[in-house]
Amino acid sequence: MTPRPADGTAATDGLTVGAVASLAGVTVRTLHHWDAIGLVRPSARTTAGYRLYTAADVARIHRVLVYRELDVPLDRIADLLDAPSGDATESLRRQRDQLRERILRMERMVAALDRIVEARNTGILLNAEEQVAIFGAQWRPAWVAEARERWGETGQWAQYAERAAGRTADDWRSITTDVEALNADLAAARRAGVRPGSDEANVLAERHRASIGVYFDCTHSMHVCLGRRYTTEPGFAAYYDGFEPGLAGWLRDVIDANARAHGVDPESATWR
């Protein structure tokens, strides 16, 4: 069937803007814009004077769509379409190279997202043998799964997973070394009788809070909530008291005193 323009006059040689819009998968408004800026102008007319798109015009539209897929600006598309063959070829080569770089960036992004998804599901991107080798013989790989079961839907777990996704075995070794040094200093301070609320104790409290911050952002209020667990949950208490008897309770007092110095009431602190 021969296309008909808006006024009903038969089209003698070409397609109406509506027909071309449907064919190319663009809007009529887009075609009008391209016409207005001289990018693609319909070059035929009906007997009533309405403009029509010829086969060559439609072919130019499809070339425009290819360049748009490559994110080439409209003004550059016009230059490419109208440039001498040699210039256009060189420009296409540059565009191809840019596209390859973009593909590589996207592939790296996909790989990074895959690591985040895996970290969210597994908690840590190390196998069981690597975990024990880095964290020590007392480490139980099942702890990570237990932590995910307990906190997997929280924002803190999401932060932890995003950070874990970018960490190598060497990164975890460095973190472990820092934690070991901190625990040794905490135990030494407890033995030396360092008082909670003293400058020395507050420095240690901030170091401890920063060690939590390696995994997720830890406020003073959240720090207090963690400190409570150190004396109420046997696993935590055994962990800290293994470095120095009474360390768990002393550390809780140190955390509370430091939080109080930062305007947080330990008695009413919540996880926020």
Rank of each mutant, 00 (worst) to 15 (best):
T2C: 14
T2H: 00
A6K: 04
D7P: 00
T12V: 15
D13M: 12
G14N: 07
L23Y: 11
A24F: 07
V26L: 11
L31F: 05
H32A: 14
H33G: 10
P42I: 10
P42W: 05
A44F: 05
R45W: 03
A48G: 15
T54E: 12
R68H: 01
E69Q: 12
V72L: 04
L74R: 01
I77Q: 05
A78E: 11
D79Q: 10
L80R: 06
A83H: 00
G86D: 15
D87T: 11
R100L: 10
M109T: 07
A111C: 01
R115T: 01
A119K: 04
L125E: 03
V132R: 08
W139S: 06
P141T: 07
W151M: 03
E153H: 03
A158W: 10
R163Y: 13
A164E: 10
R167P: 04
A169K: 03
R173T: 03
I175W: 15
V179H: 13
E180Y: 09
A184V: 04
R191L: 12
D199Q: 14
A205S: 09
D217S: 08
D217M: 08
D217I: 02
M222T: 01
G227R: 00
Y230I: 08
T232E: 02
P245R: 00
A248K: 04
W250V: 02
D256T: 01
A259Y: 11
H262V: 01
G263F: 00
P266M: 09
S268R: 15
A269C: 07
